[in-house]
Design a protein around this nucleic acid. Structure first.
Lengths: 223, 223
DNA sequence: TCAGTAAGAGTCACAATGACTAGAACAGAG
DNA sequence: CTCTGTTCTAGTCATTGTGACTCTTACTGA
């Protein structure tokens, strides 16, 4: 009876690769379902919407409860409401997507029921979650090109090479370092600090920092 | 108890202006509320989600029932779910936005409870509908620049001047006719027919047609 | 026949971008 | 200490897309 309203989140982070030649792998944490339908299958973290809480707040809370992660960026993805997307009654899912810093994601505990998967090598998930992740991936890759959200994968300060690696890993391309530098430095939202990273094996790169008065993405009137 | 799920739609069409110097006005049909809360106020057409129907289907149906319009383009805008957006219990609204052909919108019946308003001269609406329309407008103006949805305001065939007027009216800019032509003709999705519009006061312009195998907008995996 | 207006083709300068070159600055091997 | 390999960083060059602008063509109505 009635329509159930759920809130789920597709969480992205860049995790270290087993092969050290790769710079990292775009990954997604999934939770194993303990109940029918789809018991045993992996699925997106989430749950029923809370009556006393905004949708984004519910997304952030569920996200934290299941993975202990705090997102650096959170945005609504889509409301999935096809009639046949669940086996047990009608469910409308308001899905969010989130970006988590690599540093945090590394510490994150994995367990029997929570595990990280490479974003484009997912198993068969519960419900229509494969399709949802596919759409989230598309949005992430698009938005990376015309906004500043790449920063959300990194920390307060970062080198241009780190920022370039984020783009290369997520968008699965290889970018010319010199051209990438030119483009980033043309934006006033990125400021060079006078610090450098010492201790590396090569010429010490300069640290950059995002102007915190500039928001990561322009979502119009929604802020 | 429980969260009510509603579906509403922001409908756009270009309607003739009273001043013949203007080419048209971007307009939105609104319906007058007959019940509390906000009885007498104008609001977006919509209603409760139907358990047996997809969200987009509900949006299109409600849209047709209240305005007798069939949209040429329909896309989900956002799920609004703040806790304080309704006076009567918690309501989550999945909002769509739609484009209707000018030809259809002209025929559309206005009545005591349905009326068209210029998109940026709206009265104070019920609930948070002013904010919703503002966001829909922002999305429309953005999307017009990087997709082919402008065509949805027109008919099967159209002149380049008509298409340019759509851009000028919606984006509130004035565009150079020659540059606009160059840009449109560089896209393979627009094909020139060998027909022309005769009977005008000036040199008869050629009719163009959109390649129907190309979709109006690229919404990724959602199609 | 002329004036006014829009269609349609073309030119020019400038900005953004991809491909590429080259010097500077480091660590570690010899 | 010197050499080598790598990366950081600053440049050049050619191509492309775009805004501003000019000019000719084709029509109607005065």
């Amino acid at each position: 009876m009635g329509i159930d309203l759920a809130v789920s989140t597709v969480i992205f982070a860049i995790r270290p690769a087993s092969d050290p030649a790769e710079r990292g792998i775009l990954s997604i944490p999934l939770v194993r379902r303990t109940r029918e339908p789809f018991a045993g299958r992996w699925s997106l973290p989430g749950g029923a919407a809370d009556e006393a809480e905004g949708l984004a707040d519910t997304a952030a809370r569920k996200l934290y409860e299941t993975t202990q992660l705090a997102p650096a960026y959170l945005e609504q993805l889509y409301a999935f409401g096809d009639t046949d997307r669940s086996w047990s009654g009608r469910v409308v899912s308001v899905v969010y997507w989130a970006l988590v810093r690599a540093e945090l994601a590394e510490q994150a505990a994995e367990g029997e029921n929570v595990r990280w998967f490479p974003a484009d090598e997912l198993p068969e998930l519960a419900f229509d979650h494969n399709r949802i992740v596919e759409y989230a991936l598309w949005r992430l890759r698009n938005k990376l090109e015309y906004s500043r959200i790449a920063q959300a994968f990194l920390g307060e300060t970062f080198t241009l090479t780190q920022l370039r690696h984020v783009h290369e890993i997520v968008r699965q391309v290889s970018l010319d370092p010199a051209n990438f530098r030119r483009q980033i430095e043309s934006s006033p939202a990125v400021v060079a600090t006078d610090e450098v990273v010492s201790g590396g094996r090569h010429r010490p790169p300069r640290l950059y920092r995002y102007d915190t008065t500039v928001q990561l993405a322009d979502n119009g009137p929604l802020g």
